[in-house]
Amino acid sequence: MAFYVFAVIAVVASVLVIAQRNPIYSVLLLIASFGALSGLYVLLEAPFVAVIQIIVYAGAIMVLFLFVVMLLNAPHEETDYDERIHAYEAERGAGVPAERVRGAGAPGVNKVPMRFGGFLAAALAVELVWVLTKGGESGAFPSGAISSVKTIGQLLFTDYAFAFEVTSVLILVAMVGAVVLARRES
């Protein structure tokens, strides 16, 4: 039961993220989606992942996004373009045939790539569901999962020690890259 509650929250929040025209609302809705995913991780008996989902993802990465959105102070998509996109989305949501949507477009808009992209995404969803459920009816999860923080820490510093060290180099490179890229040209 809790699975369906969290799943619905995650899907609805994610859909709203890409339906918003204001990036600030998108970021806040994505945080809600991450909260629901965190609940799903708890249901999967992965409390460590659930906690770092909240602390690292919602707490650090999303705050970085929010910071940039507010720093740039350009909250809306460009108005002219935006109106056309939203007219298109509203009509598509109402189940209007594609011909009418095409006719309703303002001049100079190339909506074909976007419609094609939406179609590709729908096709991808169907394919993924088909492939992932092809393994037949999976039964209930085995009881007594080994997912304590102790187990994870031991694996992380033994079997995955090399990947762990490479991760630190990656973060260093990302930090230097971010500083260099965002530096103001003097």
Binding site: A10, V11, S14, V15, V17, I18, I85, E89, P113, M114, F116, G117, G118, L120, A121, A122, L124, A125, L128, V129, L132
Partner: peptide, 14 residues
């Protein structure tokens, strides 16, 4: 997970 991934893909395209 497939649904969420497709939503993300749609967001990138749309």
């Amino acid at each position: 997970s497939a649904i969420l991934f497709a939503i993300g893909t749609a967001g990138v395209f749309v």
